[in-house]
Design a protein around this nucleic acid. Structure first.
Lengths: 242, 242
DNA sequence: CGACTCATTGATTACCTTCAAATATTGTGG
DNA sequence: CCACAATATTTGAAGGTAATCAATGAGTCG
């Protein structure tokens, strides 16, 4: 059934809170298996109510919403350590879809045990609320970014945020990090057209701020990029891992 | 100290979940008082970490974020029944500011009791996560709206959502409801300029879809408005009240 | 090698912003 | 009580940012 929680490679990262042995024990009972997803495969669909919850172990994905007329809005990226399905677990219904962009490995949890978590593991319950509140925080920032920034600033903001997160996940080497998405994905996340996204990325390139091609993002100077993106110095705080 | 939870007028609304007598008992201990805010007064500031949490009892407010250069983005409205300070309670830091637009009455809770809630009231802890996840849901929808809709659709979407919520709170009478904000507030929420917001509101008026002036919103036909706003039929589900 | 997907570039159009000014409406002090 | 300041709404005009339309280039795969 794959990796035991006690050996979880992700939890070793300094980004994540340490876990007590009692908690690890509980998590190993909570975890019912692992799942491997092919690239492009849907993980959860908007409106669905699944019996399982997930944590991304490896690979990258997307959260998105579809409008009736086919327009798509990408809500956020899914990176290793991200919890998937909180809304299904709590609201009984996903309000966005999730799909794998690259091949992904997911930890699978049994949703029916969620109640036991709230009854017997108050600290873990608190962590779940933390994750939900943190997602709320991120979406609030994204909303302000989309609303107030113009394309050039906005893309700088997005790439800087992504860079910081990849860095915290120890996925950067020097000035390079993997970013295996299409320009269309980023365009759908920013509410910009593909054409304009492409042209704005070219500007960032010409300004030596960010180079993104062939699934690799190169950022020579993250602080310069953050300055253009009007990023606050939001240091990534330690966070719980489910 | 104002209203006792058992007599809470808000919880009577069909929008909210019923509460067991044990829960009411706990909430009455959790609640430490009430607070009256003057119009325009800040309730919580971004970055702050307060010892108190709130629930809006009456009046209306705004959640917003400020960019360094002074631009403001309005995240959402604060209406009766809304919980204020979840982020401070869980993340130890507000990631947006909250201020009263009209005079407001707030229930005040003692944040240091939050742990006791997680230890002793798992159902209430679950409700808190529910609220956080629900906020995440709303912000995801707002993000998709800002990203994918043009101004005319967007304002229709926003006014329709607001109308539905006011209606669920029993604040509508016929086709009229109070909406005591400025056009600038709505503009800052939609990421549009004041001028364009004004002109687009005029179009909605000319289409007989929505009339908003002097703090009053009139919607002759909510379903027509929702159609323009591309609103899903998201019926407002029952929700917990803290 | 042809079909397909994705990235890139140019030209045109349109939505939205900015600038500017006029018109209420309200509160204040002489 | 009226003049004046301050706030909010409304309207017109001009300019810029971003969308759409269209076509080409580059890489992958069966």
């Amino acid at each position: 059934m794959g990796i035991k929680c006690r050996n979880c490679p992700i939890r070793q990262l300094p980004l994540f809170d340490p876990m007590s042995s009692t908690e690890i024990e509980f998590m190993e009972k909570f975890k019912v298996g692992e799942m491997n997803m092919e690239p492009g495969v849907p993980i959860l669909a908007e409106g669905a109510n699944t019996p399982q919850l997930y944590t991304a172990l490896s690979g990258m994905g997307l959260r998105y919403k579809l409008l009736e007329d086919g327009r798509r809005h990408v809500i956020s990226l899914v990176l290793p350590g991200d919890f998937i399905g909180l809304q299904a677990g709590v609201l009984n219904q996903m309000t966005h879809s999730v799909e794998a962009t690259t091949a992904m490995t997911l930890c699978v949890f049994d949703r029916s045990e969620l109640w036991s978590l709230y009854r017997n593991q108050p600290a873990r319950a608190f962590d779940l609320t933390w994750l939900a509140a943190n997602e709320e925080r991120f979406l609030g920032e994204a909303l302000a970014a989309l609303g107030q920034r113009e394309a050039y600033e906005l893309l700088a903001w997005a790439l800087a945020r992504i860079w910081r997160k990849l860095n915290a996940l120890d996925m950067t080497s020097g000035t390079v990090a993997p970013l295996p998405y299409r320009q269309q994905d980023l365009a759908d996340a920013m509410g910009l057209s593909l054409v304009h996204t492409n042209k704005t990325l070219a500007k960032l390139r010409n300004s030596d701020l960010a180079f993104w091609s062939d699934g690799e993002l190169t950022v020579p100077d993250i602080e310069a990029l953050e300055e253009v993106g009007l990023c606050r110095d939001e240091s990534l705080r330690k966070r719980p891992l489910i």
